[in-house]
Amino acid sequence: MLVSGIKSRPVYGTLAPNEQARLNIVFADGEGALAVLAMKPAAPTAFWARTHVIYVAGGSAPQGHFAKLQALGTHSCHEAPTIASALPRLKALLGAARMGTQLYLAGTEPLMGEGMRVAGEYGIRHQSIRTEHRGSLARRVQCVHCKGITESVTTNIVPCAHCGLHLLVRDHYSRRVGAFQGVNIDAEAPGQLPKVEEVFK
């Protein structure tokens, strides 16, 4: 029943340093730190010297990734408690930036979704952002009916955290909303739900 293979599903890449860029802004969460650290062999010291890092540790705090990011010798390295609290700093950096700035997003889909949405407000087209997915596949899901967002969804079917309807989580993804689409699954036969499975871990 899960509709798969939908083409709006975002495709993420592997982070690589843009050595031409005159300024780099890295926005990462959780295990995304490992994607940033993995650029080390390819990135000279000078690259890190013109790089700002904003990091949200989340559930990865015990791993101590932030200390390793700090050791990269970046221009600035900031830890924020949540994605939402990191956004004002990201916006301040983008607001002052000139052309020749490269944005990197690494970690969970919600982080990358938020990062792309904000970048768009500053005139960065999404194709020019470098991304790498790490960590949880949990999804932000927007209920198409009430428009509420349900965070950290790991199952194919989930009750909307706002209106309570049972939603089928589709692969249809909106960059603007930064979320997958959830559509009521049992409207035609109330209470008849397919098997709920954990599919986005």
Partner: peptide
């Protein structure tokens, strides 16, 4: 849904259509 699809490109908004891709 326009509200969900607005801002998508041609392939993305046709994403849910089966077979044709």
């Amino acid at each position: 849904s326009l509200d969900f699809d607005i801002g998508m490109n041609f392939f993305e908004w046709h994403g849910p259509v089966p077979l044709a891709h």
